[in-house]
Every structure is written in structure tokens, then in C-alpha cells.
């Protein structure tokens, strides 16, 4: 189970990187980055997964006394929670810069932006 979802996450990272490297349209590159982002999140969550255990919530099903034996690792989940929120911030920044670039040149093709190339 954990291995399957690890594999899914890694595949998504590779697909996203491939798209970011091969696309010429800046918006498509940003879409690819969000795909890779989702892949990283899936990998992190599945690292914390343990079979036959429940979500880290101590209700009547999981008495607090035996919590350590019944719940899965909460730390990767906290990490991913923050990563998703920051991911939206990063995407918004990338989109804002992409829009500025479009206004500057009237194009979103990455090969039009040669200023730093030599």
C-alpha cells in the first residue's frame, strides 16, 4: 500500500519535471510544477503511512492510552499540510511573474526571453 502510493508519487514528480523541462509555454510549465508538487506531497504522506492503523485523531475509537500503538505518524501530515499552503503561495507568485512577463513582451514563449542567455 505505502509502496504503491510511493510509486505513484514518484511517477508524478517525474512527469511534472518532464513537462516543466520540455514545455515552452510558461503557463504550461507552471501547471507541470503543480503536478510535481502534488507528487511530492503524496510521497511524504505515504512515508508516514503504516498498515492497520488509523488517522491521528484520538476519539472513542482510539483511546488516548493506546494511541501510540493505534495511530499513524502525524509528523509527515503536518509537514504536507504546510507544504500545500505554501505551494499555493508559490504558484500565485509564479503566475504573477508570468503575467508581468507577458505584459512586457506580449508572449509567453520561454524562448523569447533571452536576456540572461549567452
Amino acid at each position: 500500500m505505502a509502496q504503491v502510493s510511493l510509486l505513484i508519487g514518484f511517477t508524478l514528480i517525474l512527469l511534472g519535471l518532464y513537462g516543466a523541462l520540455t514545455n515552452r509555454d510558461i503557463l504550461r510549465m507552471i501547471v507541470s510544477f503543480t503536478i510535481a508538487d502534488a507528487g511530492v506531497n503524496v510521497v511524504l504522506v505515504s512515508v508516514g503511512y503504516m498498515a492497520h492503523r488509523t488517522a491521528p485523531i484520538l476519539d472513542s475509537a482510539v483511546p488516548a492510552g493506546q494511541a501510540a500503538a493505534r495511530i499513524i505518524d502525524p509528523v509527515p501530515q503536518v509537514l504536507v499540510l504546510t507544504a500545500i499552503v505554501i505551494g499555493l503561495g508559490v504558484t500565485a507568485l509564479m503566475l504573477a511573474y508570468a503575467y508581468r512577463l507577458f505584459r512586457l513582451r506580449g508572449s509567453l514563449d520561454i524562448s523569447q526571453f533571452m536576456d540572461l542567455k549567452w
Partner: peptide, 25 residues
């Protein structure tokens, strides 16, 4: 896949009730 919680996670799991009092770890 791990079969036991590591030390940090086990600490969080066992002390969530008495130290913080929150159900959602």
C-alpha cells in the same frame, strides 16, 4: 514501512491528551 512510531511521533501520540488536550494530533 515502519511498524513502530519513531520517538518523536510516539511522544506526540502519548502526550497529546495530558499536555495539549487536543483530540486531533
Amino acid at each position: 514501512p515502519a511498524t513502530e512510531l519513531n520517538r518523536t511521533a510516539a511522544y506526540y501520540a502519548t502526550h497529546a491528551q495530558e499536555e495539549v488536550g487536543a483530540q486531533n494530533v
